[in-house]
Amino acid sequence: MIRRVVPVAAGVFCLLLAAGFFLVLRGAVETGSGRDGPLLRDLFTTSSVDETGSVNVVTAILMDYRAFDTLGEATVIFTAVAVAAAILGKPRPTESQRTMGLLSRRLLSSVLPLFLLFPLFVIAHGHISPGGGFQGGVSLAVLVILIHVAFGDPFGQNVVPLRLLVMVEYGAALGLVAVGMLGIVQGASFLANLAAGFPSGTPGSLLSGGVIPVLNLLVGLKVAAGLSSLYIYLSGHEASRGDR
């Protein structure tokens, strides 16, 4: 009896909660729409090109206005890797690992450099087109995962060793802090961009936006290293052979 009632009660509860969720969202939109005067979004879209040199406003917010939050987010990924490493322990690649078929491996080994093109493009053009450090970094991580899945874990560990990933992650984190410190050295605030005197360039060209491309590259490397090492920690285990 109780087994039947509980899911139904939970369903009713969740539907009520969903109604409340909807009303809150509606209310949030209605409170904002009645105001006159400048809106925050107009402020961002009209002044971000002059203030940051980045045409993509989302990247401008992530890497300039709220760059400190991005640093915090990088820390969250770092913490996730640390926790996964603490829970799962050192990955031990198994010898008898299943790989993809010969044709797929042959094809992949010649196509993989082309796959590398997309993340690099997304990271490099983060300030002028959709994309940026996060998206490009995750695509890089997926590429590392693809190498592991296609060629087996031992080969993947040889090509992209975990030590290298960890080093890249440390280096990118230190680089982020160093770029932030550069802002202070120049006489502005932590992670300041154009206010610290970095050249803005022509908005819309590849080399523009002060330190935004550098931050994009660093965040991309950090996210790529963090997420792919998460995968390696998760996959690098024998399926409960020795331990119980």
Binding site: V58, L62, D69, T70, E73, V76, I77, T79, A80, V83, A84, I87, L88, G132, F134, V138, V223, G226, L227, L230, Y231, Y233, L234
Partner: peptide, 16 residues
């Protein structure tokens, strides 16, 4: 964007 990337981190910890 921030929420998506952090969600991936949370998911990895939950699966671990």
């Amino acid at each position: 964007l921030t929420a998506i990337v952090i969600g991936a981190g949370i998911l990895a910890i939950a699966l671990a």
